[in-house]
Structure formats: structure tokens, C-alpha cells
Design a protein around this nucleic acid. Structure first.
Length: 882
RNA sequence: GGGAGCAUAGCUCAGCUGGUUCAGAGCAUCUGCCUUACAAGCAGAGGGUCCGCGGUUCGAACCCGUGUGCUCCCACCA
């Protein structure tokens, strides 16, 4: 069968993914092998995979596939997150298009629509995960609103409530007026915004005196309940104890003092609006001020505002300014830039608002979670970048607002009677029992009503590594015991607090065990110019289109090759092209080897010691071992992109450019079967090491390389263990490669055509020793008919001499150009080089600090270098004398 | 305002314990090649005040100080 000119991924990818799935290779069950568990960071059910996910999933798949091939029972659990606010917003919008108002339908009806919507769109991400080649266990798909998961969240809520770690209370929280729900602190994003600072005149009661207040939010003046100045501010000394009149509404408020005030900012006087600013709220608490909430849930002005009631907050701002202007209270306006909080989900400007919400006490959870990282039980990669951040957040953590005024999510399991007494229980019937225990019989005409609110999405996600194995709902099950804790968590650094820290808390709190020993943070994926990927910029490519264009392997390759651990990566399609080229390079080696297969010598012919393949195979064997050690080390340090680079070089340079060229039979010559078999083994093993990165092309090639038994598939083959490599063979290989490079250069300089042979090559034997096969490579690669070994002599005039210089560089010179003085100069140059080196070594070794601080092996190494150098100097001196 | 990280070739980055395997890799660029697996390739080349300044040291890309610039996190002063 003739193979196509280029590797064409389209049909091949779907074929193998189907085969892998049908063969249940990725379905894991507990057995005698050690487990390797990864839980996917569940993408939002609303979304499609963007390049950030692509990077994450690729990293996970590389780790999972590699573990599977190293003898672990690999289990990668896929799933998705119900993403309460984001999804609810999408469903509300969808209903609106249909002409349905959310408030006009029942909660039950709404949830029906939501689940319907989820069924329709939730599978998109799963298709994408499959297209990317992810080896997830599709039997374990988990959704955070699955029945068992729902129960787990409720169970945990009740448990924490019983431990008094959840409480209900009125607090100032971030309010999203668009989604009409509370938000946690982490769900608020701050952005720099150009605004205006308004200077407003507040009259002093019974006086013509006034105080000027600077504010950005004049629409909140109706909620003012005090004016505050610094106690020692001379500007306001004479007014202390007076009353101030709020403009427009003519409310009389006290003038209070507090050290909190910055005398130099604005006018040094602050209007205190406890209902609409966190700092004002705290001042209000301290000074016992009234709280007047002038806003409704949707951001319109409330009755309490007295004027512009029902008007949107931003509209009202304009009107208030106009009115202040009319009445002469507005003194001036200044442009002012400030940071405003926006809802991460709805992007509306958030309002600080006092409301009754449910909170989790974080201090008791934070301490063990902090300790897990500080003590090194959990290792974060890269540590230097995130350890400090993690530590700081946990040391300064505030209570977590977990209630959301939404319908899509786990409904808070609290039941209230008409007097506001409440109980928390896992079900309504249990609630009734609990109520009776606590408050006695429910009044005849009363009933228990469940809390309308649902829980923060992250209050469900934090159970992910446990409940995907039913560890909350069925704590003693075999899966949990086998798979928990997970082996590694791979996720984006942006959710370190939302998710990672809280999973660690949950793991320790509910299972008394860390959820994973290693956390690998991937960077943000940005575009070529370093901008964030976003829909509005149109710089976020469509994953499926990329896969169609380049193939999944190329996408995986492209994104990994440019993703240094923990650093942001600039996404550039050039990387995918490189990946495509790489896949093609694999394809072509396959073609070459198959051609050799058709040109085998009769099988009884032995390999002669002068066959180039003898040294070539020995060298590559050693080179491969060396590379394995290196790659394993890189993986253990989670330097996955460097591991890819390493295996890339091993394949392209070492295997293709050197090894294959060395063993390649000459024109119209046949291939030695022994060398051929060895080559296939090398190639197969290379495929094993490449497979985690580029699974499809390697599987395809594996099957085209020779006929296979059914289910002899690459993705479940075991990698051979690391072996030690022989340094002297490696060194000879290095020298040989250098020799050939310089030799080729020399041919070029001499303008020798490929067909023109070098008739005689004169070289000292000590460069390579007695390796017959190695000289065969030189002869073949440099097209040289004869090599002669001479000790530093120069004969004839049509030959080429090989001159060694420096430690292991090799120079060629044609005899014509070679003069004795030149030779002497070369040696002298060399001598001064070695002398300089020796001097530096001596200094280093005689340096007290070096000797004291360096490890013994380092010192030994330096000593060895010194001895070698001395030897070389002696040899050169000897030659010079002669 | 507090904290963290970064600054090395046009771009993205390696560079362990300070030294001569230290000035590197990949990509990009340029030059020459359709050489019997591969032009999605091969063979070469150019390109750097290792951000500036000062210090420690026999010796600094590496350690210390300082300045500058960038990035991120936290806090959110009207």
C-alpha cells in the first residue's frame, strides 16, 4: 500500500478515537495496579472550550496517557459545572427571546427549561474534549447538578451548619443588580474607569456656613446619615457638634469625627452612606448611624430615596447632578479615574449592599489548608510564583458568602416558619422533625417554607475530587478508597482561590486528607500581541476549526511547545504549523522504513563489524537512554514543554538527521535485516515516548510499521524502563557528529560536489579509536574512499588532514594550505587556551569559599577537569618539542 | 497603598552550585539546494552592552544594593 505524500489526520483521528473508546481503554476500574487519578476542572456547561481549556486538557492528557503507559491504572474523570449565574443568565436570555419572562413562570418550570437547555448545549464541550484526543473515562462523566452531587452539596451544607461553620446574617455583600443576586468577594472584578468627582455643598444647620464634600456617587446622597471629618482637622474645628443638612432631601445629619478620614483627600470631609459603601458601613457600625438603603434589588432607586424613585441608578446620577446644579449645591466637577467593581458573570457594576445571606466561616478551614502547602504536603508548580499568593490569601481570608438569589443551583436546605424561625435539614420531612425538636409543634395554620436561594457554584465545585467518586454521598465506597486523593490537579492560575484553595479545604475537612499532592498551574493563553483572548476582540480561535485545519496532534503540539510552566503563553498558529510539520516528519520516517522493508537482504546474512549500522545502533541506543533520563526528570519537575522539546530533538535531530542517515543503505543497496529490526524497535519506542503528546499520529504509525495482533495498540503499551547509558559511546557519537558537520562544511568550502569523493582522508587514530563501524560512517557520509591513519605527518598533496584542536573540536585542512608554522600556531593557541583554563580551575580550587560550600561531587568534578587539562597541556608541549 | 514575579538574539524562552561544555535552543530572517522518506524538507549564515548604574569577588547573565520598565495578585480613600 502506497502511503500519502503528507500525513492526513482527518480520518485517522476519528478512527482511532472510536477504536480506543470501543476497546474501553480509558475506562478504569480499581485493580491491583497503583492508581493515577486526574479530575478534570469541570468547564462551564454553558461554554465551548477556549484555548485555555485546550492547554489544560492537553497537559492532563499528556500526564494521564504517560501514566497509563508506565503501568498505572489511569483514571481521568470528565464532567462539567452547572455555573449557576452564568447559565441562569443564558437561560433567562433564551426565555426572553421566546417572549417568556422568568418572573412569570414557576421555579419548577424554569428548572425544566434550564435542564433542557443544558441537555442541548452541554454536550458541545464533551465533543471537543473527544476531538482533542483526551483519554477520559466517559463512564464517569459527572455534572455538578447530578442527583448524587446535589445531595452531596446539601449534605455538606447541613454538616457544616451543625458544626456551626455556616451561619446566616446581615452583612454588606457585593450585589449584582443585573442578575439580582449576591456575589462572593472573588466574583467581583475591578477595572479602572474614568469617572467624575463632584464637589457638593452641604449647609450647616442654622448658619450660612457649609461643608464641601467630594463624591463620585451623588445619587447616594439620599442615603447619607452623617458627615465625617478627621478629629484634628483645623478646617472643620469650628463646626464640631453642629448638624449638617443633606441637599435635595433636607435631612439633618450629625457631623462626626473619625481617625479613618484622610485630611488631604478631596476636601477632607466624607459623606457617610452606610447602606452603599463598605467603609461607610463600618463607620456607621462604629458610630451607631442609621442605615438608609436607597436602592432596590435591580439597581433602581427605592422609596427610601424619596426622589427619583424607580429610576435606574445611573440615570438618577445624572438627574441628581442636574438638580444640584439648579439649586446651587454643585460647586465643581473634576475628572477622576477610579476602580469600579464589576460582576464576573454579568459584567454589571456591583453595588455594596446590606442583605441577609449565608456565610461559611473560613478561618477554621483555612488553617489546615495553609499548612498543607507550607508543610510541603501539597506542592504547587511553579512554587515560586504561587506559594506566596496562596499563603497570603489564606492568612487574610474572609468569610465566604455562599447564597445566591437564583434558581439554577442547589437550593439552600433551610426551612422557615412564618415567624422567621428556621431549621437546616437535608429534606423537608427531616426539617419538620428538626423544627419540632427545636421549636415544638408547628402552628396549625403555619407551614415551613424552604429558602428561595441557591448555593454558590463553587460551594459545589469544592467537593469535585471527592464526589466524582461519590465520596460524600457514599463515603465508604471502593472507588473513593482506590482513586482518592487524585494524583495531580492541572488548572488555570485564575481559580487558585475560587477552586483550588477551597478543594484543599474540603478535602481536609470532609475526608481528612489532601485532595491531591501536586497542583500544576498553567498560564493564561493570550494572542500573539499579548492580549487576553476574548470574544469581543475576535482573537479567540475556534478549536474545532484549528483541529480541522492542522489536526488534533498538531494543536496539542503547538500549544504545548509554547507553554512554559506557569507562564502565560502567546498563542500563535505558527506553533501549530510546527506541530503539523512534526507529524509529517514522523510520517515520512515511516515511509522510509517501509521502503527498507521491501529491500531486505536475505535473512541469513550477518551484520559485519564494518557496517555503519553497528555503531549507529549502539550510539542511538545510548542516546535514547540518556534522553529518557532527561525527559523523566523534566516530567517530575512538571516542565512538560521542555520534555516535549527534548523528545522533539531526540526524534528529529538524533533519530532522523543522524541515525537514519547513518544506517541508510546506499543507492540501490539492500538493507541488513538485523539493522532493520533494530531500527523498527527504536522507532516503536520513540512512538511510545511521543504518544502522550501526539496520540493519533503515533498510533497510526505504530500500526503501519508492521502488522499487529488485535488490541496490540500503542496507547496501552508499556514504556520500557529507563536504562543507564554508556558515556564513552555517547562521547564518541558527539565527536562523530561534530566531525561530520565540520567535514561537510569542509567539502562545501572545497566546492566538492556530492558525487566527488575525497580520495584520501588522513587523520590521527586517537580521535575515535578502533571502531571499524564508525569509520564506515565517516567514509559514507563524507563520501571518502579511503581513510589513512598517520601520527601528525603530512604527505602527498591531494589529501585532507584532520587536525584536532581544543577539547573536542575537529578541524579539516587540505594539505596545500597547511604549513608547518601554521600548525605550530594552532598548537600554541590551543596551549594558551588550556593554560587559561587550568589557571581558572586552580583559582577555583584554592578558593576557600568554594571548597567550603561546594558539594564533594562538584569538587571531584573540578579536580578531574584539572587533571585532564594538565594531561592535555603535557601532550601539546610534547608535540611542540617534537 | 501592600505583596509577588519578570527583564538574555526580531519573537518565545533555557541557562543547576558564580568560572572555559557560557553566551544557548526553537521559531522567524537571509543564502544555497526538488540530493533516491520528507520543499510541511535538507545544508549553511547573520543576529545579543545577558535592562541601566554601583558593589561583593581573582572572576558576575548568575550574588547584594539601587534605578528604570513590564506583568500579576491582594486591598479598594470619599
Amino acid at each position: 500500500m502506497a502511503l500519502s505524500k503528507h500525513y492526513e489526520p482527518a480520518g485517522i483521528e476519528s478512527k482511532w478515537y472510536a477504536h480506543w473508546s470501543d476497546s474501553r481503554y480509558f475506562n478504569s476500574f480499581p485493580d491491583h495496579r497503583p492508581p493515577f487519578t486526574v479530575v478534570i476542572p469541570p468547564p462551564n456547561v454553558t461554554g465551548v472550550l477556549h484555548m485555555g481549556h485546550t492547554l489544560n486538557e492537553t497537559v492532563q492528557d499528556i500526564l494521564v496517557r504517560r501514566a497509563r503507559m508506565m503501568g498505572f491504572n489511569a483514571c481521568w474523570v470528565p464532567g462539567s459545572d452547572h455555573a449557576s449565574i452564568a447559565t441562569e443568565a443564558r437561560v433567562v436570555a433564551m426565555l426572553k427571546e421566546k417572549g417568556i419572562d422568568k418572573n412569570s413562570i414557576s421555579r419548577e418550570k424554569f428548572l425544566e427549561y434550564a435542564f433542557e437547555w443544558k441537555e442541548k448545549y452541554g454536550s458541545i464541550i464533551y465533543d471537543q474534549i473527544a476531538r482533542l484526543g483526551c483519554s477520559v473515562d466517559w463512564n464517569r462523566v459527572t455534572f455538578t447538578m447530578d442527583d448524587h452531587y446535589y445531595k452531596a452539596v446539601i449534605k455538606v451544607f447541613v454538616e457544616l451548619f451543625k458544626k456551626k461553620m455556616i451561619y446566616r446574617g446581615a452583612r454588606m455583600i457585593h450585589w449584582d443588580p443585573s442578575a439580582r443576586t449576591a456575589l462572593s468577594d472573588e466574583e467581583v472584578e475591578y477595572r479602572e474607569v474614568e469617572g467624575t468627582l463632584y464637589f457638593i455643598k452641604y449647609m450647616v444647620e442654622d448658619s450660612t456656613d457649609f461643608i464641601v464634600i467630594a463624591t463620585q456617587r451623588p445619587e447616594t446622597i439620599m442615603g447619607d446619615t452623617a458627615i465625617c471629618v478627621h478629629p484634628s482637622d483645623p478646617k472643620y474645628k469650628h463646626l464640631l457638634g453642629k448638624k449638617i443638612i443633606v441637599p435635595l432631601i433636607h435631612r439633618t445629619v450629625p457631623l462626626i469625627t473619625d481617625e479613618y478620614i484622610d485630611m488631604s483627600f478631596g476636601t477632607g470631609a466624607l459623606k457617610v452612606t452606610p447602606a452603599h459603601d463598605i467603609n461607610d458601613y463600618n463607620l456607621g457600625l462604629k458610630h451607631g448611624l442609621a442605615v438608609i438603603d436607597t436602592l432596590n434589588e435591580d439597581g433602581t432607586l427605592s422609596e427610601a430615596a424619596k426622589i427619583f424613585v424607580g429610576m435606574d441608578r445611573f440615570e438618577a446620577r445624572k438627574k441628581v447632578v442636574e438638580k444640584l446644579k439648579e439649586e446651587g449645591f454643585l460647586l465643581k466637577e473634576e475628572p477622576y479615574s477610579t476602580r469600579l467593581g464589576f460582576s464576573q458573570r454579568s459584567h454589571a457594576v456591583v453595588e455594596p449592599r446590606i442583605s441577609t445571606q449565608w456565610f461559611v466561616k473560613m478561618k477554621p478551614l483555612a488553617a489546615p489548608a495553609l499548612n498543607a502547602v507550607v508543610s510541603g504536603k501539597i506542592r504547587i508548580h511553579p512554587a515560586e510564583k504561587f506559594n506566596a499568593t496562596y499563603k497570603y490569601w489564606l492568612e487574610n481570608v474572609k468569610d465566604w458568602c455562599i447564597s445566591r438569589q437564583l434558581w439554577w443551583g442547589q437550593r439552600i436546605p433551610a426551612w422557615y416558619d412564618s415567624n422567621g424561625n428556621f431549621v437546616v435539614a437535608e429534606s423537608e420531612s427531616l426539617a419538620l422533625e428538626a423544627y419540632q425538636d427545636q421549636y415544638g409543634l408547628l402552628a396549625v395554620h403555619d407551614e415551613l417554607i424552604q429558602d428561595e436561594d441557591v448555593l454558590d457554584t463553587w460551594f459545589s465545585s469544592w467537593l469535585w475530587p471527592i464526589e466524582v467518586f461519590r465520596g460524600i454521598t457514599n463515603p465508604e465506597n471502593a472507588d473513593l478508597k482506590y482513586y482518592y486523593p487524585a494524583s495531580v490537579l492541572v488548572t488555570g492560575q485564575d481559580i487558585i482561590f475560587f477552586w483550588v484553595a477551597r478543594m484543599i479545604m474540603a478535602g481536609l475537612e470532609f475526608k481528612h486528607e489532601i485532595p491531591f499532592p501536586d497542583v500544576y498551574f498553567t498560564g493564561m493563553v493570550r494572542d500573539k500581541q499579548g492580549r487576553k483572548m476574548s470574544k469581543s476582540l475576535g482573537n479567540s480561535p475556534d478549536l474545532l476549526q484549528l483541529i480541522d485545519k492542522y489536526g488534533a496532534d498538531a494543536v496539542r503540539f503547538g500549544i504545548m511547545i509554547s507553554a512554559p510552566a506557569g507562564n502565560d503563553l502567546l498563542f500563535d498558529e505558527a506553533g501549530l504549523e510546527q506541530g503539523r510539520n512534526f507529524n509529517n516528519k514522523l510520517w515520512n520516517a515511516l515511509k522510509l522504513i517501509r521502503i527498507w522493508g521491501d529491500r531486505l537482504e536475505s535473512s541469513d546474512k550477518k551484520v559485519s563489524t564494518s557496517d555503519p549500522g553497528v555503531f549507529a545502533t549502539e550510539w542511538f541506543d545510548n542516546r535514547f537512554s540518556q534522553a529518557k533520563t532527561e525527559i523523566n526528570k523534566l516530567f517530575s519537575e512538571f516542565k512538560i514543554n521542555e520534555a516535549l522539546k527534548s523528545v522533539y530533538t531526540l526524534y528529529w535531530d538524533d533519530f532522523c538527521s543522524w541515525y537514519l542517515e547513518w544506517v541508510k543503505p546506499g543507492f540501490e543497496q539492500s538493507m541488513n535485516p538485523g539493522i532493520y529490526d533494530k531500527t523498527i524497535l527504536f522507532f516503536e519506542e520513540l512512538l511510545l515516548w511521543l504518544h502522550p503528546f501526539v496520540p493519533f499520529v503515533t498510533e497510526e504509525i505504530y500500526h503501519l510499521l508492521r502488522t499487529r495482533e488485535p488490541h496490540d495498540d500503542l496507547c496501552i503499551k508499556q514504556m520500557l524502563p529507563e536504562t543507564s547509558s554508556n558515556p564513552s559511546v555517547l562521547e564518541a557519537g558527539e565527536k562523530l557528529r561534530l566531525f561530520l558537520t565540520v567535514g561537510r562544511e569542509f567539502r562545501q568550502q572545497q566546492q566538492l560536489k556530492n558525487s566527488e569523493a575525497i580520495t584520501r582522508l588522513v587523520m590521527p587514530k586517537e580521535i575515535f579509536g578502533e571502531t571499524e563501524s564508525l569509520y564506515a560512517i565517516i567514509r559514507k557520509q563524507l563520501n571518502c574512499t579511503k581513510i589513512e591513519f598517520k601520527e601528525g605527518s603530512y604527505i602527498g598533496d591531494s589529501e585532507i588532514h584532520v587536525i584536532p584542536f581544543h577539547s573536542h573540536q575537529i578541524g579539516f585542512e587540505s594539505h596545500k594550505k597547511q604549513d608547518a608554522p601554521n600548525r605550530k600556531a594552532e598548537l600554541e593557541k590551543e596551549l594558551s587556551y588550556y593554560k587559561g583554563f587550568l589557571e581558572s580551575l586552580n583559582k577555583k580550587l584554592s578558593n576557600e569559599r568554594f571548597v567550603l560550600n561546594a558539594k564533594q561531587e562538584v569538587i571531584d568534578l573540578e579536580k578531574k577537569k584539572k587533571a585532564d587539562t594538565e594531561e592535555k597541556i603535557a601532550a601539546i608541549l610534547l608535540t611542540l618539542k617534537a
